Computed example of a mutant assay.
Amino acid sequence: MLGDSLSGIRVIDFTQVAAGPVCTQTLADLGADVIKVEAHKGELCRALAPFVEGQSLGFLALNGNKRSVALDLKDPGENAAALELAAGADVVVESFRPGVMQRLGLGYEDIRQRHPGVIYCSVSAYGQDGAWRHKPGVDGVLQAVAGLMSVTGLPDAPPCKVQVPVVDMVTGYFAAIGVLGALARRARTGEGQWIDTSMFASAVSLQQMSFASYFADGMPPARIGSAAPYAAPNEALRCADGWIMIAAYHPSRWEALCSVLECRELVSDARFRELSGRITHRRELVQLLEERMTRRPRREWLERFEAVDIICAPINDYSEVIASQAFAGANLSETISHPIAGELTFPRTPLRAVGEVPRARRPAPLVGEHTGEVLRAAGITCDNEGKEPWQ
């Protein structure tokens, strides 16, 4: 199973909130033993809404398959225990501002001295080098500064962020990819390394095609709503009872769309004959197409479009997504039993081999739930009696 790929790999997780936990949960989903080290009051995400029975859903969603050890990194004895755990691990992942782990004596060099083969991954807003390395950052701020908000939303509307924390997510995935690459390299050379994963760099990389276009012509892309700047029609179009996303810019599909909509005259219209013209005259094109599409309901148009191989899909809300055949066919939900929050449903990991259904994740741990178990197994003596908030 793909979920056993990292069996035997130990990861010490000093991350908080989203980007770092996405990385370590990905590694856990691939079979790594991930030990989350957090403060006795819990990491920051545990305080973020929404809550079920006092438990943060955000934390529960991003920390499955992990064990939790509660340690005060500013306490000398507990700091020493954290260092011992990190020195015995294959991978260490942290998401503090650059310099914080070094001041705590838990930086890359501190651990490398004891374990030269360690793979150490730092996740931060702006990276470990450069003038902005000490600046804080969160998903929305990085969407802004990296340009993503400048291309998201409707023309002449205020800047708009992607509602889901897309920068956090892609940064976590890039960090996990970096760790996997470093593990493969270590298998060949025996050498560890320090991986620098920046939210800013990840957000720019997410816009690779758009930045390539800007480098080519020097024109910052404008906000154009659901449309793709490189093709038309390739956008959301209104029908009688909803919206459909249509990608019918290839010549054969463009002609098929005009046939289905009974507006074949648009194929020979000088404005729309070529792709470049359809992009230039997008506003007029959309208006003409929607005049036809608003005459019939969404379901009828979808059937007609699919019959002639036009790439399209309904614009679904979440209730429609989970009721879809695509969602069921991909087996994308799992129910997890949490000791306090009870039975909860989460999206299942998409990491799988053909024909494989990943095992359900273990629930995200309570604060320090595994402190004694982990420290005893590592032969570490640490007196933090009375600090365990889970009891």
Score class of each variant (00 low, 15 high):
313 A>W: 01
261 L>M: 13
282 R>L: 06
390 W>C: 08
347 P>T: 15
255 E>R: 15
165 P>A: 15
319 S>Q: 11
55 Q>G: 04
189 T>W: 10
276 S>L: 11
77 G>H: 03
100 V>L: 12
165 P>C: 11
369 E>A: 15
126 Y>E: 03
247 A>R: 00
193 Q>K: 08
54 G>H: 02
274 E>F: 09
387 K>L: 13
12 I>K: 03
49 A>F: 04
224 I>W: 11
247 A>D: 11
18 A>Q: 06
15 T>M: 06
68 S>P: 04
117 G>P: 01
171 T>V: 10
120 Y>L: 05
203 A>Q: 03
348 R>F: 09
154 L>T: 11
219 M>C: 11
152 T>V: 14
292 R>T: 12
244 I>P: 08
365 P>I: 01
143 Q>W: 06
108 Y>T: 02
74 K>Y: 02
220 P>D: 11
15 T>G: 05
78 E>P: 02
314 P>M: 07
248 A>G: 06
346 F>M: 09
138 V>F: 15
161 K>H: 10
201 A>F: 03
327 F>A: 12
155 P>K: 12
28 A>I: 07
375 L>F: 13
98 P>W: 02
192 G>H: 05
180 L>S: 01
132 W>G: 00
142 L>T: 01
167 V>C: 10
10 R>S: 05
31 G>N: 09
71 L>N: 02
166 V>T: 15
316 N>Y: 06
1 M>F: 06
38 E>R: 05
14 F>C: 06
376 R>I: 13
234 N>Q: 10
60 L>P: 03
